[in-house]
Design a protein around this nucleic acid. Structure first.
Lengths: 191, 191
DNA sequence: GCAGTATGCAAGCAAGCACACGCATACAAG
DNA sequence: CTTGTATGCGTGTGCTTGCTTGCATACTGC
């Protein structure tokens, strides 16, 4: 990937994040990347191709992969806190908005599976974690599919709401949110 | 509001929900509404005007208003369940997708406050509820701003994830989700 | 029967869109 | 010095966009 192509991809992804795919024009991309418009089509097949190459770059993905959860301590409080923090640190408002910007009929089919990967990785890892904690006798039996989804939804929901509304909806900051949530979750899980 | 105008609004909102505002063309609106394209501009100022009149109709809003929460029973389990159900019943996948479809730079300024109203109403009511429950001596002191946000985020998150990914992310159904979540929340809140 | 209103239809407009082409220029490798 | 490659620039194409206009036709209430 030469530098010019990379500049084009970066400019495209930022515009998609801010305006959405359909509202992002090739003219605006060229201007933002500091290249001539025709250069886009020399480097890429078409507008869609730029975005698809972008979403396949590590730089433009939130790398919430299972290996993040390798260093668990098998301590409910510390681990849930780590899980939530891992997600929130990687899934920044920029990524949230990019995911929404990619929601265009023209490319939803090709990107939806990619967009879903992050929640899937997080949810699967956390469900597995809860099952292992049960096997270790540290928490009582429960519906871990549903409970993992609850913890994930609250993490996802907070991230999304903050990205969308900033502090206008709630002034509760990340650290305060994690601390209170985890406190409630562990009491509920330990029963 | 005559019938033709209403058909135009309904067609527009459905298209915005499915394709987003920018990708929704006046030609497509006319076809979907079964009217001639020029009729749109005789009834409305412009494309944006149709959408703005739409979002101001009760039909195209999720009516999550404080009065929903009037019949609380001051029983933690029953009430949280009612809160979550009230939100989920009203904030259908259609409304979630519509909210996202409205995220266009051309009209975000005029719609964002409307979109935010539903979360705001829910969150404010629920925070107030927790504070009252504390005053009644039914739950111990805690950071109710953060905890209300946790419960709301998990409700919002579940709704959003279901609307986006259906059962591909998680097969946990609404009733199962509510039951498990509430169970964990009340244990955590009652401590 | 007649005025007023609502709508369809066909044509068109200026602007913007993604994308293409020919040509000039710069630079680097041999 | 030559050749290949990357890029800018101007122009252009075919299409779509939101939106308009003039005219015909239907229906409605008086």
């Amino acid at each position: 990937m030469d530098e010019t192509s990379q500049r084009i991809i970066d400019a495209t992804m930022m515009l998609v994040r801010d305006k959405g795919y359909v509202a992002t024009t090739t003219k605006a991309i060229a201007k933002a990347a500091g290249v001539n418009e025709c250069t886009l089509f020399r480097k890429f097949k078409n507008k869609k191709d730029i975005v698809l190459q972008g979403v396949n770059q590590a730089e433009w993905r939130a790398n919430v992969t299972p290996e993040i959860f390798e260093n668990v301590q098998w301590d409910l409080q510390a681990d849930i806190e780590m899980f939530m923090r891992a997600y929130m640190d990687r899934m920044t408002p920029d990524f949230v908005n990019l995911s929404i910007g990619l929601r265009a009929p023209q490319l939803y089919e090709e990107t939806s599976s990619l967009i879903m990967k992050v929640p899937q990785a997080f949810l699967a890892s956390f469900t597995e974690y809860l099952n292992k904690m049960f096997e270790m006798g540290k928490i009582p039996k429960a519906d871990f599919d549903a409970l993992a989804l609850t913890v994930f939804s609250s993490t996802f929901g907070y991230t999304f709401l903050k990205a969308s509304f900033g502090n206008e909806l709630s002034k509760v900051e990340k650290d305060e949110y994690i601390k209170s949530s985890v406190q409630m979750f562990i009491k509920g899980l330990e029963q």
